[in-house]
Design a protein around this nucleic acid. Structure first.
Lengths: 369, 369
DNA sequence: CTGTTAGCGCATTCAA
DNA sequence: TTGAATGCGCTAACAG
């Protein structure tokens, strides 16, 4: 059954009358369950779909009565606008993607909550993608988000990510991107970070102030800019206080907690073991504390420990973990705001901004008995 | 400039030749930045867009050379398929929505990871929505997901949710829904839960076995089915072991941790305070332990504590928290599988399934010194 | 193997 | 205030 040669007038009729059945049959493959469209409403009310569309979108030039009738029928027919069609037509989805590498720690979820509040106020929906620290998943997600035509992207990359081409495509398409926490240095997009260097510097300075002299650092992978910054802060703090930088006491690792145990054990087995430990993040610090306690070291007398981020768990463990707190909600809010700035900047100028937030050193029992 | 009267043939030409400019001008409002489409590729290669489409979708009936040329040009033009258009056409988005009420505890993120793995294998993308325990946000999210035409929904509702109409719409549209953890009793959809009754029963039985006689219960809100089930398990355990059910020792609350502190204090101020505490979840139990410790009660000698879910934090706190472990990944995997079953069931039968997974009692220092 | 045509659902422009 | 026509980008049916 082919309808290609049916005259135009008749084709129009199909939509409104009996012939629709043929069309349905023709497209059997697609058809699942018919969902109410504006055409259904138009037909039942003897209106054109244009009028129905206007009524539904609060267009000013519609008779009040007509609008009322349309809205009522839409309600009773369970009409739901098809956002796909609207987005296809308008080239805007009013949706932004947020991609994070993990969400088992409190950090990323909290950032998302902050961002979501700001975006919702501006009328944007949020879709969250989780790359699970996998570069391949990140690439797939990025393509899916692009194919779904998100209006913008807020992202923190995986620790495996060294090639950023899958994000550069967004730039080329003029889809604004905002990095946070883990940022790509080489891309000229907006970024929100904390002053990792300064946070690390002050953490190590604090350890030195408590009399520690052999301070080890469990560093993150070199692929993360914040790892490098924290490492630099650690180094400079030692240097400025006249302490030697001992590479034996610096261990870069991929943040896999099982490995953390091994490295801590290794450090404590050195002929001249460290008297303090500065960890890249709180989970690492906490894992370190567990190992230290199980081996009978006293915290902080034998070994002091400092983490980074002020994870809720750092208050639970005993002694409490000294850590560098980040303004987590604020990171999310700022990232969302930077994105909105670009989204609403109709000058088309991709004016990027770089926000660096300050950290706060929270001192607990793991450094001061 | 109006083109409505331009003859058909000419309109076709527009797409391929100079007249396109006029069209562009006409649609100025929409135009932001032109993205490469199959028509661009077709024109440059002197092909029809059908051929290009076939080449791009691995359709068998395409000349190998042609395909090669298309793929190369697509690559160099930075072509990206427009999923919106495809979804609109096929009525399938190959996307499922997952909506959760919170993700600051480990539970929901872990479920999502489990679900995501199964769904990704089946070729589905996942978009995560976060209702933040707000009924209004949940309704908004549900509408957005429906408007975006997700193929299915996996959901755990907020503690405020008493009206489920926003989920019933999915049913009417034949979009399969799977509830997990917090389920709606009245909807005939697939569900994945754990045996909350049994878990609670055994937890309380364990407390009784350690000699406790006045066991209090910090229960969740009555709006959650799992709260009710856990409460029933608690009650029946007491009853079957000949202990009285004392309503003074049962406090239902909204899981707001600040309130937990107040209730625990209140309980311990009773003339005849409890000698054990069974909490609805681990965060509550941990908060309770903090209060008990700060007031000088010994755990478990003065007061034993049991939680629910085996949150990672339950291993960190001292003493370790006895808790009812749930198979979290498995919940996610099963929920995803139930959804896939319905998605791929082309008989159109919405055969729903109900999976109840078993829990495991993890005994730690908070109940056995 | 390739081209032509239709239509997914909608917002908008032009004509009435 | 309303109707008719157009096209967003794509896939598939049909006709060569």
């Amino acid at each position: 059954m082919r309808l290609g040669n049916v005259p135009n007038k008749m084709r129009t009729l199909e939509r409104y009358g009996l012939l629709r059945i043929l069309v349905l049959r023709k497209n059997t493959i697609y058809m699942t369950h018919h969902q109410t469209t504006i055409i259904d409403i138009a037909r039942q009310l003897g209106l054109s779909k244009s009028t129905v569309s206007r009524a539904l979108t609060n267009h000013p030039h519609v008779n009040a009565d007509t609008r009322q009738r349309v809205l009522e029928l839409a309600e009773s027919l369970d009409y739901q606008r098809n956002q796909l069609a609207i987005s296809l037509l308008t080239s805007r989805t009013r949706t932004v993607g947020i991609m994070i590498p993990e969400f088992l720690s409190f950090f990323f979820p909290k950032v998302i909550i902050g961002a979501q509040v700001v975006l919702a106020e501006a009328g944007y929906n949020v879709i969250i993608c989780h790359s699970n620290e996998s570069y391949a998943t990140e690439v797939t997600n990025a393509q899916a988000l692009l194919a779904s035509r998100v209006d913008g992207l807020i992202v923190s990359h995986t620790k495996e990510t060294r090639n950023f081409d899958h994000f550069r495509v967004f730039e080329r398409r003029h889809v604004p991107v905002v990095f946070f926490n883990r940022v790509c240095e080489d891309m000229a997009v907006s970024k929100v970070t904390v002053d990792d260097y300064d946070g690390a510097f002050r953490a190590v300075e604090h350890l030195i102030a408590t009399g520690k002299k052999r301070i080890a650092h469990l560093a993150g992978p070199d692929s993360l800019q914040n790892s490098r910054n924290r490492l630099n802060g650690y180094r400079d703090a030692l240097q400025q206080h006249g302490l030697p930088i001992n590479n034996e006491l610096i261990i870069s690792y991929d943040l896999n907690l099982d490995k953390a145990k091994i490295y801590v054990s290794h450090l404590m087995n050195l002929p001249d073991p460290p008297d303090a430990l500065f960890a890249m993040n709180d989970p690492t610090a906490i894992e370190a504390m567990k190992v230290l306690k199980s081996r009978g070291f006293r915290i902080p007398d034998d070994v002091a420990v400092v983490g980074f981020s002020n994870d809720p768990a750092s208050m639970l463990i005993e002694p409490g973990l000294t850590t560098v707190a980040q303004p987590v909600d604020e990171i999310g809010r700022q990232a969302a705001q930077l994105l909105l700035n670009q989204l609403t900047d109709n000058k088309g100028g991709m004016a990027t901004e770089n926000i660096v937030l300050q950290t706060e050193l929270i001192i607990r029992g793991s450094t001061t008995g």
